[in-house]
């Protein structure tokens, strides 16, 4: 029997005043996975995360986190979830040791030995005041606080923002790999796609409060491709199913399709051959978010940027 999803959101609507932020959001995160939650600034990522923690209530729809409703049991969820916020600010006057002593009583499952192990591993000086820590150390403090109670689910809201590239790599490769080894589910919101790509099992692309695509990372890479064909085949390319983006540059027409199998069949039927190019997550995201936004469903070709 398959495990219950750790996060389930159905038909979520949320508006701040007249501005809609989430519009019918559907999301399902399987247990034990590292789930990349991708979107541009303002797409609705932080609002979604605040809803998962019970810090915001949806206007419509239902949310389940670890089988619980955040509107009804926000404290039970927060006790079982680790959360690292974007640009998290701690209590600057506290010393590291004081901060741990302050936070620990709120979590019944707080593991003192594990907290000590993490603080050693992250090289955090227990006697230093939080305000005197560097940016990188600040992120590591937030991580320590999110992990020391051995959560079942960890939610990261752009946690590597402000870290140097080496630390970001260390964070993703070591920490996320460690969490995956412990079968902890990771919900990772980010817009640094090239970094999250190696560790993400599944991806959801969010734009303007709607999910554009949710898929396993491998499936997404296998299905979303760029096709390059001579410019005189542009009419046929425009008629392919699931076009995300299209451009014409000189004698070449380029399209990004979200289902290469259907596109291959359509091209074979029309007698057109095209070169298939693999895309990384960054390019896939761009095709979904920018490509669709430009033209809507009926994608019109545009002049490609000159490199």
């Amino acid at each position: 029997m398959s495990e219950q999803p750790v996060i389930e959101m159905r038909g979520i609507e949320k508006a701040f005043g007249r501005k809609p932020v989430l519009q019918g959001l559907d999301l399902s995160v399987p247990a034990g996975q590292t789930f990349a939650f991708l979107g541009r600034n303002g797409a609705g990522k932080t609002t979604t995360i605040r809803m998962l923690l019970g810090l915001l209530k949806p206007d419509a729809g239902h949310v389940r986190v670890l089988g619980l409703d955040p509107s009804m049991d926000p404290l039970a969820i927060r006790r079982r979830v680790g959360y690292v916020a974007e640009d998290q600010t701690m209590f600057g006057w506290m010393r590291m040791g004081q901060l741990l002593s302050f936070v620990a009583p709120f979590y019944p499952t707080w593991d003192v030995a594990w907290a000590k192990q993490l603080s050693d591993r992250f090289e955090l000086p227990l006697k230093t005041r939080v305000k005197h820590l560097s940016k990188g150390q600040g992120v590591r403090v937030a991580l320590l606080l999110a992990l020391a109670h051995r959560p079942k689910l960890v939610i990261f809201d752009d946690p590597t923002l402000g870290l140097d590239p080496i630390m970001r790599k260390e964070f993703l490769r070591e920490l996320v790999t460690h969490l995956q080894g412990e079968h902890v589910s990771v919900f990772f919101s980010s817009h640094l796609l090239y970094e999250i790509e190696p560790v993400a099992d599944s991806v959801v692309i969010l734009d303007h409060g709607r999910v554009l695509r949710q898929a396993a990372t491998e499936d997404l890479r296998a299905q979303v491709k760029r096709l390059v064909a001579p410019a005189d085949a542009q009419e046929i390319l425009r008629g392919l199913p699931g076009i995300l983006d299209m451009s014409i540059s000189g004698r070449q027409a380029t399209v990004v399709v979200e289902d290469i199998i259907a596109a291959r069949a359509a091209m074979a039927a029309a007698g057109v051959t095209a070169q298939e190019i693999d895309l990384n997550l960054d390019e896939i995201f761009e095709a979904y978010v920018i490509g669709r936004r430009k033209e809507g469903k009926d994608v019109e070709p545009h002049l490609e940027r000159v490199a």
Binding site: L55, A85, M90, G92, Y107
Partner: peptide, 9 residues
């Protein structure tokens, strides 16, 4: 820091 405080259980 109020955000961090409110995010505690």
């Amino acid at each position: 820091s109020l955000e961090s405080l409110l995010a505690l259980p």
